[in-house]
Amino acid sequence: MANVHIPTQMRQLCGGQELVKIPGKTVRELIEELEHRFPGVKNYLLDGNDLRPSIAVWVDGELAPAGLLETVGPESEVHFMPAIGGG
């Protein structure tokens, strides 16, 4: 079960929970499962078939360049964070 940390503004969709344990082998599977439990999550995180450009997913402390395709382990920590740009 991966630990999915729910960003503040998504918590109202998730019954106020900050942390949800969900099964899944990829970020995409986690989001499908989240959506199943908390309808509306998908629309919050995704634009069509990909993550919204304003959102970045971090897996195990690291920005995950593969996005939805990123694989997650059974103990993985998954964070959704605002995307950032540098100068």
Binding site: H5, W58, E62, E77, H79, M81
Partner: peptide, 17 residues
């Protein structure tokens, strides 16, 4: 005293390496 180290969670997310 308050500084982040390895393992301290970033305020918005995962712990630092």
């Amino acid at each position: 005293l308050n500084g982040a180290r390895e393992g301290t969670p970033h305020p918005a997310g995962p712990p630092y390496r």
